[in-house]
Design a protein around this nucleic acid. Structure first.
Lengths: 150, 150
DNA sequence: GGATTTTTGTTGCAAATGCAACAAAAATCC
DNA sequence: GGATTTTTGTTGCATTTGCAACAAAAATCC
């Protein structure tokens, strides 16, 4: 029994913790950088999809996004055809901060992957994507109120 | 720029989310399974080390542990020589629930690693350990109030 | 061996998180 | 085309989370 999932948890918490501390400088509350980067990279995305993408509860996403809007990092726009959805776009301020987030993330990337060859990085990315796809099926299933059998 | 760290974040949040939902059945609050498994596997550990191991804030660990104690999953014992520390041990109830947690974790492991060969699993574990060691240095550094330069 | 620093633990806040429950628009069914 | 289900969004509430600030024991320094 390899403790692969435990390693993933440790890495994720450590990185998230570092980012949250470092982004206070830009007045981003805990977790908000996750949403902002995705809105910048996927302009027009709706919050429901954002929550799925990040793997976070819908209501948590809703509130994080509301706060990002209040603080002027993103804006919500009505869709022309669909009255129900609200499309999300970064403001100039959001775009600006995005670059600092990327810079930080790139640095963490370098630190995290230090000592790995290009081939190893490639291989790690490939493996992780497969793991992620595997697990997101269960996440959807469980989040919708279903019960896994094991 | 491979989005390796993003994949790790998604996987970790998805898994954590699933576990938290599934462990409500055993009256474990959000996050508590993390502490309990480590106390069972490292009896006598102190909360400071536990926080480092899990990569979580010291005060968060303190409260999670307090709650685990109140709910009878673990107990704190004074050390014979060191008056400052409190060693943590599982109760019978804690040991009991531990097996259910392991069962769930093993299942998630299987799901997550489906389609990966033994060699790939081995390789993934090896790579992740290296990444984790790389990043925990920075985590310690930043958590102690230091500022990274990049 | 006394002063200083580090380790370990705690509590007070403020905030994020997520479940339950609701509402309304859109999509699907027959 | 009307009924039913799914999608998308929101709010109330209880809980976890983490930073700041403190306290006391232990370890280190000179």
């Amino acid at each position: 029994m390899k403790e692969i999932l435990r390693e993933i948890g440790m890495i994720a918490r450590a990185l998230d913790s570092i980012s949250n501390i470092e982004f206070k400088e830009y007045d981003l509350a805990r977790g908000q950088y996750l949403y902002l980067v995705r809105v910048v990279e996927n302009p027009g995305i709706i919050q429901e999809k954002l929550a799925e993408m990040i793997k976070v509860d819908r209501t948590t996403a809703a509130r994080a996004i509301k706060k990002l809007e209040i603080n002027g990092f993103i804006e919500k726009r009505d869709d022309e055809y669909n009255q129900k959805i609200k499309k999300l776009f970064p403001t100039e301020k959001g775009e600006h901060v995005y670059h600092y987030i990327r810079r930080e993330n790139d640095h963490s990337d370098k630190v995290a992957l230090a000592g790995l060859s290009e081939g190893e990085v490639e291989s790690l990315y490939n493996l992780l994507q497969r793991v992620r796809k595997n697990i997101e099926t269960d996440w959807d299933f469980v989040k919708k109120g279903n019960k896994r059998n094991y």
